[in-house]
């Protein structure tokens, strides 16, 4: 395979990417193996799949995992209740089971004539056994529907991106089959690039102040949830809209509520870092 083939994914204009992550994506494309992306919340795990889809010009299928999601739902659902109902009231031809087989997200990705990108978002939200139930399907990229005696196999193996917040440990057998990348929290240099992508006409002074305040906030170790990239971007947007700068004066930060989301964290910050002005009792976290 030539070099040209390997460097398929180069990042897109609205998503700044590190070399390591770019490599990992390309390796997973070449080896046709799922890419498992892990990292702090708000470091752009989900956006990565959108960026890949955009840059390669492919359709993205998103499978959002919830705690009640079962692996089989991603393949297909056999709507027995509908069929029972139809048989009772005779609306449709119930002898054709095919009408009651609905393909799930994984099934759709397999069944599509073009190569698609499948994002399995927050796989760790599901039951502990969930990833194991998908092992064979992701390996072979095919599955069997006993009800109709059909095998759905991928016409074009989809590019599979899986994100995880590490709420649950994933099983080893599943991990062995994946390419893994851990998105580190961006260093100031990369962060600057990221902000400039989002706000091309941001003033240098504002950017500098905001970054300084942000990284000094992140240094505080006692937060339950540290502010992350997405919060910084929201915050800068708020700053730009209001015309304020991002400087910390006497510990007061404008729009603190956009940066720190947990009440305990805000209370902690206000009680430890904000110098109280005489007469003012409450600190308004959503204004200044």
């Amino acid at each position: 395979m030539t070099q040209k083939h390997f460097d398929q994914f180069k990042g897109s204009s609205d998503y700044v990417i590190s070399d390591a992550l770019k490599n990992a994506v390309n390796v997973s494309i070449v080896l046709q193996r799922p890419l498992l992306v892990r990292g702090e919340p708000g470091t752009g795990k989900t956006l990565l799949a959108h960026s890949i889809a955009k840059s390669l010009g492919k359709k993205l299928i998103v499978w959002n995992i919830k705690s009640t999601t079962k692996a089989a739902e991603g393949l297909y659902v056999y709507d027995t209740v509908q069929r029972l109902n139809d048989s009772r009231f005779g609306d449709r031809d119930v002898s054709e089971i095919k009408h009651y087989i609905k393909l799930g997200k994984l099934g759709q990705a397999f069944n599509s004539p073009q190569q698609e990108i499948l994002l399995i978002d927050e796989i760790d939200k599901a039951d502990l056994e969930f990833p194991n139930d998908l092992l064979n399907e992701l390996d072979e990229m095919s599955f069997y529907i006993p009800e109709t005696n059909e095998t759905i196999s991928a016409k074009q193996r989809p590019i599979v991106i899986i994100t995880s917040n590490n709420e649950k440990e994933l099983p080893d057998a599943f991990l062995r089959r994946c390419i893994f990348h851990y998105i580190e929290f961006p260093d100031p240099q990369l962060m600057e690039d990221i902000i400039r992508v989002h706000f091309p006409d941001i003033k240098n002074a504002l950017l500098k102040d905001a970054m300084e305040s942000f990284y000094s906030l992140r240094k505080i170790g006692d937060f339950r949830k540290k502010p992350s990239t997405s919060e910084l971007i929201d915050w800068i947007q708020a700053l730009m809209a209001s015309g304020l700068d991002g400087k910390i004066k006497d510990g007061e930060i404008p729009f603190l509520g956009t940066l720190i989301k947990k009440e305990t964290d805000i209370n902690y910050y206000v009680s430890h870092y904000v110098r109280r002005k005489p007469g003012s009792r409450d600190y308004n976290v959503y204004g200044n």
């Binding site: 395979m1 070099q3 390591a20 390796v27 080896l31």
Partner: peptide, 20 residues
């Protein structure tokens, strides 16, 4: 498949594949 050109890329490639 010729995924790498130098040691630097090897570092990331091997890490992505071997370390989970």
């Amino acid at each position: 498949k010729g995924c790498i050109n130098n040691l630097n890329e090897f570092y990331y490639l091997a890490r992505a594949i071997l370390v989970k």
